[in-house]
Design a protein around this nucleic acid. Sequence first.
RNA 1: UCCCCUGUAGCUCAGCUGGUAGAGCGGGUGACUGUUAAUCACCAUGUCGUUGGUUCGAGUCCAACCGGGGGAGCCA
Length: 484
Amino acid sequence: MNYLSRTRIAALLASGPSAEEIEVPGWVRTRRDSKNVCFLELNDGSSLNGLQVIINKEGTDLQPLIERIQTGAAVIARGHLVESPGAGQSVELVCRDLTLVGECPAESYPLQKKRHSFEFLREIAHLRGRTNTFGAVMRVRNCLSRAVHQFYQERGFLYLHTPIITAGDAEGAGALFQVTTLDVENPPRLGSATPAGATSGDAARSGAAAGPVDYGRDFFGSRTFLTVSGQLNAEAYATALDRVYTFGPTFRAENSNTTRHLAEFWMIEPEMAFCDLEGNMELAEQFVRYLLRDVLEKCPEDMTFFDKRIEPGIVESLRGVAETQFRHLSYTEAISALEKSGETFEYAPSWGIDLQTEHEKYLTEKYAGGPVIVTDYPREIKAFYMKHNEDGKTVRAMDVLVPRLGEIIGGSQREDRLDALEASIDRLGLDRETYRWYLDLRRFGSVPHSGFGLGFERLVRYVTGMQNIRDVIPFPRAVGNADF
RNA sequence: UCCCCUGUAGCUCAGCUGGUAGAGCGGGUGACUGUUAAUCACCAUGUCGUUGGUUCGAGUCCAACCGGGGGAGCCA
């Protein structure tokens, strides 16, 4: 049968009985045997539920074959769909013929017909996609990913591919992964006339005597890193094409071991010209609500699974967020609300400190009872490129906070005045020359512009209710672990 | 990076104040059966994370190291 014309299990389950013979490939989740009948549950990844395959053993020579079919085996079943007399499914496949494509020895196959801990499944990340939970996570991830593009494409945003390798530490913050083709054991040194190879290994390694590494002889002729954000590059194209977005991998070498950090993650960063903070907030809110509506509509089966098995009540809470207007609150108002809350916080709220996780939780879950957008933070705790307010103390920043998760989006209106941006760069001791091209954007046809960043895995974690961010990406990259 | 918890069978765990290792699930075998986490019976599970120490004796106590988890910070 032609590969592309084959009907997959998700569609078969939604269809009715038919006399037409079909061919269904998939992996066996369980096998149950009766005297005359063998039941296979077949899954092909197209849906959470599998197709029940019925093999009448009487009058067939399939018995020896059936005995070799164990959990995890790859098979192709041929037969036709009938109405199922049993509970649990509306249709089932009456199997006329069966091919065992790939055996799966039960004694050594790590996945059993039982619940496994996510910790264990992380150790077999190459196989965990075959479980209900990870199948559902990846389908939801795919759905959200498509919805991201749909949302921006529908609104005339241009998908911009920003570089993975960058020359500078874009935001002056965060640990970076260095990219180099130099011999890390023995790099060329400045002030050394001899080529690297001629230097004695011991002398080179002693470090103290050697000069700084000569990155002019590195691949790009300068020191390079994996990107921590595409924002600055996106600004360049937003001030040319009006509205763009990035959706690509991002890298942070932070030594953070938490349920919400990855060393390699995907980030979405829209950037809009002729757009102030209000427009930015409106886009962020519409974006989040669109994504939630879309996944609830397109993945009801998987979302019901998460609601039942992973995070009870999640569907209702996401629906609530999708239908609720986000509350707007200035940082100053937020601090004041926290101070008046009567709650005892581990970190006492006070104007000037960043909002802690416990503060975000209070604001969303108790104070507002829903999503909150906090704006106008003290400039000292925000990035150099954010637009200064008239008060000289705060910047046009915004964080979107949601119940259960906290910050899901961080963004700002960008500083579009050349002198103000230069002043910020100087004040923070950054190098104007590094940002020469970025400053050009303020020299030539500068406009008010805004944007934000959304960590894709944090979104998937929020939508699925999965506790650990390492379980919402196929192969997680985190401190001390780059397996698979 | 800091704080807390944890490492025993393929998986999830029990193992009291030190006395020489167990349960459920999974696996194998058999029975029964239009089953659906199928059911019932029987069988086999092991360098107790590693190294060192205390002790007549260590899964159990001590130390160091390694791995895993949670929280905090940093952030998306």
